[in-house]
Nucleic acid binder design. Structure first.
Lengths: 226, 226
DNA sequence: GTCTTCGATGATCAGGATGCGCATGGATGT
DNA sequence: ACATCCATGCGCATCCTGATCATCGAAGAC
């Protein structure tokens, strides 16, 4: 998952971030509301951790503005300092999906983030394209009866491609989905991973699913599909 | 937006309704399938929230009957109680546009409703001229049943021509559409690409679509059209 | 009306640029 | 030690371009 942390307490943000990164998530940070909103609009996150009290633009206002955007829906988990704040929040209900009162345990934070993200994708928690399927809960991918061995990056690429299918995923979108703001220097890395993914998906199968759109990107679909 | 909620659980319906009204939406209620279907046919909603399990007429059946109507298409979001129910749904696919498994977050429900409504009014991503079509999402072009092999520049030229059809696209416009501010030195490049595009589109077909307007530009249309 | 003329366009091809697949080895973290 | 990731280098495929020659069409001369 790609997660945005909006939190002005640098120590807390670092704590959360290190923990999440240790569990294989990709984390971006924002120290204030303005830059947080900006990042949230620019990029596409699977979930946002948002502190209620922020300098500049507070959590409630940020939430409201983000929901006002007609763009993609992003699950938001709000952090509050005291129970009283939280109760007040529930009355207001500015559009957060879940709440957590400090102090909290990091494993619980992660669990809630995953639950939110899973619900957000609920109808598609089993992605299917032709005889290829990816279970987002177990993270197991299959092509027919054969189970595919994928690296974490390979899985994310596959997920991105399957969600977009049968549309094309541009190289830029793919790079952004995998590495976010910090892509590797050359684009050779993407080529290498595509190569590995293609080997996993299409090897030993006459029906090819992963197609290259020269100069544009990649596309996952049965060849003659629309 | 005007939204219809068909849900027999009065508490849940009230919850959803209050939330949506708090966000400025207009909400109608139905407590069972029969009255829900009636309301849906009489009025014109931007979206419908439909519980799968209903007394009298269940969600699937209601969905089917509503789709059988020759009237306006209404986006339907189906609520299901358990993942198992949802899996069954995916198999049946009775025409709902989206699914949400209880429990769900209200902001997400709203986001999905808005997304559905927006999608219902989405700009056409399939361009058509006679039996020629170009899918802008998959970037696949067809002439009848035959699939066309196009280069990136060929695709952009075709898109430009199809959008303009049946009007003429001047050479200057075409050059600008493809290369922008940095056109090639000679106009030979454009001629070459037009040649390639003509070969792809009109070869082996008595009905020619790509016409040259001498001294003006190019035009994509059936010969005898205006 | 017909012919002539010349600029505009079509057809074709080869060289060069670019994009991409693929194999390999080193770097990194666990 | 192992998996994973990423950079390098090579070779192939595709694409783009410019050159050249053939053809077409509009406009004026007769």
């Amino acid at each position: 998952m790609r997660i945005l942390i909006i939190e002005d307490n640098a120590d807390l943000a670092a704590n959360i971030g290190e923990f999440l990164e240790g569990r294989g998530e990709i984390v971006d940070y924002a120290g204030d509301g303005i830059s947080g909103l900006h990042l949230a609009v620019i990029n596409s996150y699977d979930a946002i951790v948002l502190d209620l009290s922020l300098p500049g633009l507070d959590g409630l206002e940020l939430c409201r503005r983000l929901r006002a955007e007609e763009s993609r829906y992003v699950p938001i988990l709000m952090l509050t300092s005291r129970d009283t704040e939280r109760d007040k929040l529930l009355g207001f209900d500015m559009g957060a999906d879940d709440y957590l009162t400090k102090p909290f345990s990091l494993p619980e934070l992660l669990a809630r983030l995953r639950a939110m993200a899973r619900r957000a994708h609920a109808p598609q928690s089993l992605l299917q394209v032709a005889d290829l399927e990816l279970n987002l809960r177990t993270l197991i991918a299959r092509r027919g009866e054969r189970r595919l061995e994928l690296s974490p990056i390979g899985r994310r690429m596959l997920e991105k491609l399957m969600r977009a299918s049968p549309a094309v995923v541009s190289r830029a979108d793919m790079v952004n989905a995998i590495w976010g703001d910090d892509p590797p220097d050359s684009d050779a890395a993407l080529r290498t991973h595509i190569h590995a993914l293609r080997a996993a998906v299409d090897q030993n199968n006459p029906v090819k699913l992963l197609h290259t759109m020269h100069g544009i990107g990649y596309r996952l679909a049965v060849d003659d599909a629309i």
